[in-house]
Structures are given as C-alpha cells and as structure tokens.
Amino acid sequence: MTRSNKPIVWGPFAAGGTLTAFVTPALIVLTLLAGLGYAPELLGYDRLHAFMGHWLVKLAAIAVVFVSLWSSAHRLRITCYDLGLRADMLVATVVYAVALTGALAAAVFLAGI
C-alpha cells in the first residue's frame, strides 16, 4: 500500500479552520478598533511587549500563525484547482512555502521580543 501524505496536509488544515473560526473574527475586531482610534489596552506597546514576552504566549502565537496560514494555503490551493489552474504541484509548493515562511518569520520575530 502506498503511503499518503494527506493526513499531514489535512491535519493542520482542519486545526487551522477550527482555530480561525473561533478566534480570527475577534482578533480582527481588536485591530479594527485600534485602526479606528479606540486601541484596546492590550495593544499598547508596553502591555503587548510584556504579554508577548512570555514563552507560553510565544508558543501559542507561533501555533496560531502556523495553522492559520496553513489552512489558508490549503484552501487557496484547492480553489486554484477549482478555478481551472491545474498546475497543482506548483501551486501547492508556492502556497505551503509561503505559509511555512510566515510561521518561521513569526518565530524569529517572537524570539526577539
């Protein structure tokens, strides 16, 4: 039997779909409020710097960024196929690479906080 890599691709997709369903709208509201001039206390530099400085928060942030980007990448790959772009291997490589790079960048930036 040939082994399938589907569970590896699909696991983070399902995790990301669930996580973004639960938290992304609220996160968007937070930065939208900041944009409208009603920045929540947590988004002040000192508060946020101290909050993001905790190692547990850093780990959680990396996980959130990774699964959010991965699930978006996977959905984009499927959508490209549905819209008639059949170079699946190329599309998959590009979108997953962007997702991994984004998560890696987040880890590097968090290490500097």
Binding site: T20, T24, L27, I28, T31, Y45, L48, H49, M52, A61, V65, S68, L69, S71, S72, A73, R75, L76, I78, T79, D82, A99, G102, A105, A106, F109, L110, G112, I113
Partner: peptide, 30 residues
Amino acid sequence: REFSCLFIGGYTLLLVAGLKSLSEGRGAYE
C-alpha cells in the same frame, strides 16, 4: 467561502508584520 482564505491568510500576515514591528521597538510599533 473559499475566498475567505485570502482574507484570513492576509490578516495573519498582517499580524506577523505587527510582531516584526513589536520586536523592533516602540517607534516601529507606533
């Protein structure tokens, strides 16, 4: 529904940019 991935992914990248600015100091974050 599928196009929501562009906005959720794009927003996540915006958050990564926010983390970058936070790591660079007060001026960058402001």
